[in-house]
Amino acid sequence: MKFDSLHQLGLDDREISIYRALLRLGPASIRDVAAESGVNRGSTYETLKQLAGKGVVNYFPRGRRRVFQAEEPEQLLQLGERRQQALSQAMEQLRTEVIPELKQSRAEFSPGNVRFYEGDDGVELVLRDILDSTAADPERGYSVISTKTLREHLYRPFPNFTRQRESRGIRVRVIAVGEGGDEAEYAERKWLPASDTSDASYIAIYPPKVAMITLADKDYPVVVIIDSAAIASTQQILFDTLWGLL
Results as ranks from 00 to 15, higher is better:
209 K>N: 12
130 I>T: 04
238 L>Q: 14
149 T>L: 03
208 P>T: 10
189 R>N: 00
103 K>D: 11
215 L>N: 03
41 R>T: 15
150 L>G: 01
11 L>K: 04
50 Q>M: 08
78 Q>C: 03
94 L>E: 14
242 L>E: 13
171 R>N: 12
70 A>F: 02
28 A>V: 08
41 R>L: 14
96 T>S: 10
6 L>W: 07
37 S>Q: 05
24 R>D: 06
231 I>L: 15
99 I>M: 12
129 D>R: 11
203 I>A: 00
241 T>M: 09
241 T>C: 07
61 P>S: 10
231 I>Q: 08
1 M>E: 10
72 E>A: 08
38 G>L: 12
221 P>C: 06
194 A>N: 02
177 V>R: 02
124 E>D: 09
168 R>E: 09
211 A>W: 02
241 T>Y: 11
140 R>D: 06
68 F>L: 02
19 Y>V: 03
31 R>K: 14
76 L>Y: 05
117 Y>D: 13
2 K>F: 09
130 I>A: 05
155 Y>T: 02
154 L>A: 05
140 R>Q: 15
177 V>F: 00
34 A>I: 07
14 R>K: 14
10 G>Y: 12
241 T>S: 13
3 F>P: 00
66 R>A: 03
234 T>G: 10
32 D>K: 12
200 A>I: 02
73 P>Q: 07
223 V>R: 01
72 E>V: 06
204 A>W: 01
144 V>T: 10
212 M>I: 13
205 I>V: 14
63 G>A: 14
107 A>N: 10
221 P>D: 08
14 R>E: 08
17 S>A: 14
83 R>W: 01
189 R>L: 04
244 G>L: 13
110 S>L: 12
201 S>R: 08
32 D>F: 01
243 W>Y: 12
241 T>Q: 13
175 I>L: 13
79 L>P: 06
71 E>Q: 12
159 P>Y: 04
174 V>W: 02
52 A>C: 08
53 G>I: 00
156 R>K: 14
211 A>M: 09
9 L>G: 09
152 E>H: 11
96 T>K: 07
148 K>G: 03
123 V>D: 01
103 K>F: 07
195 S>Y: 10
245 L>K: 13
129 D>H: 12
79 L>W: 04
113 N>T: 10
177 V>G: 00
4 D>E: 15
183 E>I: 06
90 A>L: 14
206 Y>W: 09
95 R>Y: 10
4 D>F: 09
63 G>T: 11
238 L>N: 14
43 S>M: 13
133 S>W: 04
21 A>G: 08
